[in-house]
Amino acid sequence: MKWIYLLSLLITAPLFGQKIIWKEGQKLNWSQFKSETNRKGSNVVAYTHCGWEYTVVKSTNPNVPVKIEIVTIFNEDKSWKDPKRINDYVLNHEQKHFDIAEIYARKLRKEVMEKIKTSGDFDRKFQSIYNKISNEYRNFQILYDKDTQHGINTEKQAEYNLIIARELDYLKNFKSS
């Protein structure tokens, strides 16, 4: 149904148009897939452009506490669908891509909360933490599409639906506030 590309972490949020922030219980709908451009070829039914963004408030003094906010986003203007081939099953597969982005945002929040307390910690540690989580995220998205055959393999899709739900629950203490 599509390949996912990691939306780079951005310091300034309004660069890419209309965004939806991931919220528990809020589901995507087809009207939110607003791009008319199919960049993936004729065999792709939909493309979900999602990832996370962060903002940082820090001091030049390395001992001052740092504030980092990480949000999971879905970019409406870069997400698209083939209106002739969409259905609720495909939408569920795309929703899971968004949910996976939230899982890895929670993992990033967890590591940041555990390892970064000050502006100096941010300067020394954030980029390596980000790179590690970002690579894990990208690899999991690719594996998800490969294993589910972009949602075509219903048995594998059902397995991933459970895995994703369990991970969201396991990391519930790291939801965005």
Rank of each mutant, 00 (worst) to 15 (best):
N75M: 11
I116Q: 02
Q32L: 14
S119Q: 05
K117C: 00
Y144W: 08
K84M: 09
Y137L: 08
K146A: 12
L168Y: 00
E114T: 11
N135Y: 08
R166E: 14
N87E: 10
E155D: 13
T60L: 09
Q127V: 11
M1F: 11
I103S: 04
K117G: 05
Q32A: 10
K40Y: 07
M1S: 15
A105K: 06
D82W: 02
K67D: 14
T55L: 05
V112Q: 00
Q149G: 01
E102S: 11
S59D: 13
S119D: 06
I100T: 11
G120M: 04
R39H: 13
T55W: 03
V44F: 10
D77A: 12
F140D: 07
V71S: 09
V90T: 13
W30V: 05
N38C: 02
S119C: 07
N38E: 01
D123C: 01
K34Q: 15
S79P: 06
S42H: 09
D82L: 04
Q26A: 09
E69G: 04
D82P: 01
W80L: 02
I86R: 02
N29R: 13
Q95I: 03
P65Q: 13
E111M: 08
R138Y: 14
F174C: 01
W3N: 13
W3S: 12
I163H: 03
A101I: 06
I100K: 10
I70K: 03
I100L: 14
E24P: 01
I11T: 13
K110G: 03
L15G: 11
L28A: 05
V57G: 01
S128R: 13
E159M: 12
V64H: 02
D145M: 05
F122T: 00
K34M: 15
T60R: 13
I73R: 03
N92K: 13
T148P: 07
S35T: 10
F33C: 03
H150G: 03
L10W: 02
